[in-house]
């Protein structure tokens, strides 16, 4: 029983692979992930596509501990013990949830700079699911 079916996953591949956002032509707000309406003005049509830089800062985070991962992530958790998930505020404005990698769990903090990297997320029933994770940057980046 795959959690996200291939067609469901495939429908917003451009968001997931290319960090493609929708800029509202009515109010200018950058919406990511794209959805049926503008988050600021509720406009439902008229968007232009823009690609996000993938850079941002940690807005909040958690570390999913031993034994509590959803089933499709149990393999990852068994291998690493735990993994970090954060809400990242992208430099263009929108926020997105993703796993955080390359950060020392002890030093994870709100406000750290991160950058999107393309990664395999998990594998279920022979289907590989790709997407973005965010990697901690050194202070200057």
């Amino acid at each position: 029983m795959a959690f996200v079916s291939v067609p469901v996953y495939g429908r917003n591949l451009r968001d997931k692979y290319g960090l493609e956002a929708s800029k509202c032509t009515s109010c200018g707000f950058i919406n990511f992930p794209s959805k049926g309406s503008c988050r600021r003005c509720s406009n439902t049509e008229g968007f232009t596509k823009v690609n996000l830089s993938g850079k941002g800062t940690i807005y909040s985070y958690t570390i999913i501990g031993a034994g509590s991962a959803p089933p499709e992530f149990s393999a990852q958790q068994k291998a690493s013990g735990s993994y970090a998930v954060g809400i990242v505020e992208l430099d263009e404005g929108p926020r997105i949830v993703a796993q955080l990698i390359g950060c020392d769990p002890e030093k994870l903090k709100i406000g750290l700079r991160v950058e999107a990297v393309f990664r395999k997320i998990y594998e279920e029933e022979g289907v590989v699911i790709y997407g973005s994770k965010f990697r901690c940057l050194s202070k200057k980046q």
Binding site: V4, V8, I64, P70, Q76, V85, V97, Q99, I121, G131
Partner: peptide
């Protein structure tokens, strides 16, 4: 679509 794909509980 997104939270679950990030391994959220």
């Amino acid at each position: 679509e997104y939270e679950r794909l990030a391994g959220m509980t």
